[in-house]
Design a protein around this nucleic acid. Structure first.
Length: 279
DNA sequence: AAAGTAACCTGCCCGC
DNA sequence: TGCGGGCAGGTTACTT
């Protein structure tokens, strides 16, 4: 799915387009996506409301409404939020058949939730309600309170393999399969290393790699790995794919030493690495 | 208690 | 050309 950089890009774009626009119409065509409350309640509570502030937590987008409610999106594996002005069509290769939720604003513009695989989730809760999925999230890797000291302490106390730890949203929020692969390659660390086996120097390299990869991916507006994958709010692809060093390169060569890359499976996810550079 | 597996979905790609 | 298997950015629930 959209990992942290993709979700952050969508969040920033939304802030430019939908803040303070009154919702005058709501169409729900896949009720199953809405986890809380019922579809009828959802529509009733959002009608005539507007978004006054947007935040991102991990891979979640939180829209704080003027009504005191909070509208939350998780884009799952293939979800997109798309925006179109009145009489404007979403360009891009996005199949309308997977449009599941539509908001129409007062000025005639629209926000569409599109999701091929339907793994996304949407909630509408009171803004002070503690949603378990949000409450259990770990460190925000781009925030200042995520320090090398905290990172070191957290990882050195864990026995699991480092790739699973990086992807565990309860430990660090926002890293998925693409960026976990990239971060570990950049840090020169083998994905199967145990958390508690990493020394201070390795954790320092890993910490810098997390910040580096995520910040650069945000600057590139995310990673689009195929025509039908991630799109921003305007339906455009992200360009970090040009910077990707190992993810998806089944037959590729290591950009550092030139040896063939390996693919292994960790927690049933493809894991790309250079077995001579990553130890 | 940690680690593996199935489940939720649709679509693409590859081999036969 | 068609069919089956495997795989895809994620997360949770249920097994071992």
């Amino acid at each position: 799915m959209p990992e942290l950089p993709e979700v952050e890009t969508i969040k920033r774009d939304l802030e430019q387009e939908v803040l303070n626009k009154k919702i005058i119409g709501i169409k729900v065509s896949l009720p199953r996506l809405i986890k809380i409350p019922t579809v009828n309640q959802f529509r009733k509570c959002l009608k005539e409301a507007f978004i006054k502030m947007i935040k991102r937590k991990g891979k979640y987008i939180l829209c704080f409404m003027n009504t005191g409610d909070c509208l939350i999106f998780h884009l799952g594996m293939s979800g997109s939020l798309l925006y179109q002005k009145r009489n404007e069509r979403v360009v891009a290769r996005v199949n309308n058949k997977h449009n599941h939720l539509l908001f129409i604003f007062e000025d005639g513009s629209k926000m569409i939730y599109n999701d091929v695989r339907q793994f996304g989730k949407i909630w509408l809760i009171k803004e002070n309600y503690k949603l378990r999925e949000i409450e259990s999230l770990g460190w925000e890797p781009l925030e200042e309170n995520f320090t090398l000291q905290e990172f070191t302490r957290t990882i050195q106390s864990k026995k699991g393999n480092i790739k699973s730890l990086l992807m565990n949203q309860k430990i660090i929020a926002g890293i998925g399969n693409i960026y976990a692969n990239e971060v570990l390659f950049l840090a020169g660390i083998h994905p199967m290393r145990k958390g508690n086996s990493l020394n201070n120097n390795e954790l320092w390299k890993l910490y810098l790699s997390i910040k580096n990869v995520l910040n650069n991916a945000v600057l590139a507006r995310g990673t689009t790995i195929a025509d039908e994958s991630y799109r921003d709010l305007q339906g455009k692809p992200g360009s970090y794919i040009e910077k990707v060093l190992v993810y998806g390169k089944k037959t590729g060569k290591c950009p550092v030493c030139g040896n063939p890359l390996s693919v292994i499976r960790i927690e049933n996810r493809s894991t790309f690495l250079c077995s001579s550079c990553q130890r």
